[in-house]
């Protein structure tokens, strides 16, 4: 039950901690040595007593010194309180390391840290201009590898690349129901018969692309309806109102 708090404090055997006497003693010593530091170092010896009676006395006096309202017989409350105390000590220390920041300063500091982390010629920064020869070369290389046809407008070509990568990504991530067989559409099914097989195929491709866009639009509409329904819908029937006629 203390795992999260122990982990937050960096206690090594946080997962295995149990409230038996030896583990409690070990933890109390560790907390006092590393986090709470209430007693002067030389006075901490009493907590390391090997006799249970001695340890019990030492712990209770330690607790009352800290101002804990519980005694050792109520071990769960003691552990919860003591861990809370340790976390507070830790937090106070951390706070001293970082002087108070208001939001604007904090944002400024974050931006500064980022700027420092990224060298000026890094690719993540806006390029000086899209006419930059290196940029042109990189875009062309990317588009050629994606087999996107040549075009004078570099930005258009880059957009095509982004679109293509997005579509491929979607396709890879989408769950295609393999149990549904293909129905084997032919260009004739779609009303095309130009007398040129290649032209028929191309026209069919365009038509199917258009339909897939429409389908996506309709699916998004349906999703919005479902969202609205989660707020408005509460279908009820009342059997008592019903009457069968003659």
């Amino acid at each position: 039950m203390y795992t999260r708090r122990l982990k937050a404090l960096g206690y090594l055997s946080a997962d295995k901690f149990k409230t038996n006497i030896s583990q409690v003693q070990q933890l109390v010593i560790w907390l006092e040595d590393n986090k709470i530091r209430y007693l002067p170092i030389e006075n901490r010896e009493s907590l390391k007593a090997t006799e249970f009676k001695d340890f019990k006395r030492a712990l209770n006096s330690y607790l009352s010194g800290l101002g804990c309202p519980f005694e050792m017989k109520d071990i769960d409350s003691v552990m919860t309180w003591l861990l809370g105390r340790a976390i507070r000590s830790e937090y106070t220390e951390v706070l001293q390391e970082y002087p108070e920041l208001n939001t604007a300063e904090f944002k400024g500091a974050r931006a500064k840290r980022r700027a420092e982390a990224v060298p000026a010629d890094d690719y993540r920064l806006p390029l000086p201009s899209v006419d930059h020869p290196e940029f042109k070369q990189m875009v062309n290389q990317l588009c050629n590898s994606l087999m996107i046809p040549a075009h004078d407008d570099l930005i258009l070509r880059l957009q095509a690349a982004a679109h293509l990568i997005g579509e491929r990504d979607k396709l890879e991530n989408s769950k295609i129901d393999k149990s549904r067989k293909s129905i084997g559409l032919t260009p004739q099914d779609l009303g095309f018969d130009f007398g040129d097989a290649a032209l028929d195929q191309a026209a069919m491709g365009l038509r199917l692309l258009h339909q897939s866009e429409l389908r996506n639009l309709q699916t998004r509409i349906n999703e919005i309806i479902v969202k609205v329904q989660s707020v408005t819908a509460d279908p009820r029937t009342d059997e008592r109102l019903g009457r069968v006629g003659k």
Binding site: T237, G242, V244
Partner: peptide, 12 residues
């Protein structure tokens, strides 16, 4: 499903 002449529905 309520049916027939003079039937009444169950939706309030």
């Amino acid at each position: 499903i309520p049916v027939g002449v003079g039937s009444r529905g169950v939706i309030p």
